[in-house]
Each structure stands twice: as structure tokens, then as C-alpha cells.
Computed example of a mutant assay.
Amino acid sequence: MIGFSDAPLAWGLTRGMARVLGVNLPSAVVDGWLTRKELGQLVSRCEACSQKTACTAWLATATGTSCPPVFCPNKTALEVLSLRH
């Protein structure tokens, strides 16, 4: 299983943002359209973000038609991934 035990909150938030866009990050790595290094970069950006409380609140109300909020440091990368998926 793919995960980031050293950054569980950032991993969960990154996966949550991706899910809203219909992207399954572990599957993306297994299927080869996202590298493990690129996934690590997404999680690292999330971990460095100061908006975790706002992110958690946003994810609690997000729907499958939502796009990541402007404060998300992974917004552009996740939107690109959703187009490739």
C-alpha cells in the first residue's frame, strides 16, 4: 500500500483533495501516470501548507463537482492530474 506514515495528516488531505477531482493517487502511481517522487512532492507541499484547518473544513463540504480551493498549494497539479485521469 502507498502511504506516508511520517506525514499522515498531509497524506490524508492530499488524497482527499485528489478524490474530490476523481483521482485515486495510489492507483495513479500503480498505473504509472504519477511517480512515487511526484506523489511525495504533493504530500510535501501539503505538509508545508499553513491552511490545514481550512482545508479540513473545505473537504468536509466538498462534492465531486468542486475544484480545490485557491489556497491549496496542490491545486494546479491536482487539476492537471484530473485531466490525465
Rank of each mutant, 00 (worst) to 15 (best):
R84K: 15
M1Y: 10
R45V: 06
L21P: 01
E38L: 07
L13N: 00
K52N: 09
G16Y: 01
I2A: 11
L13E: 01
D31W: 10
P68T: 02
L34E: 00
P8M: 08
V29S: 03
G22F: 04
A18Q: 02
Q41V: 12
I2W: 13
K37G: 09
L13T: 00
R15Q: 13
C67D: 08
R45Y: 08
M17V: 06
V43W: 02
C55G: 03
H85S: 15
T61K: 15
F71D: 08
N24Y: 13
A62T: 03
V23I: 06
T53L: 14
C67E: 08
C72N: 01
A10G: 06
T61E: 12
S50F: 10
M1S: 14
T35G: 13
S82D: 02
A54C: 11
S82N: 07
E38S: 15
L81S: 01
A54N: 14
S50I: 08
A77F: 03
A77E: 02
M17T: 03
P69M: 06
G3L: 08
T14M: 03
A57Y: 07
P8K: 06
A7V: 06
V70E: 13
T63Q: 08
P68M: 03
I2K: 13
C49W: 04
V29D: 02
I2M: 13
V70K: 09
L21E: 00
V43S: 00
A57R: 12
R19W: 11
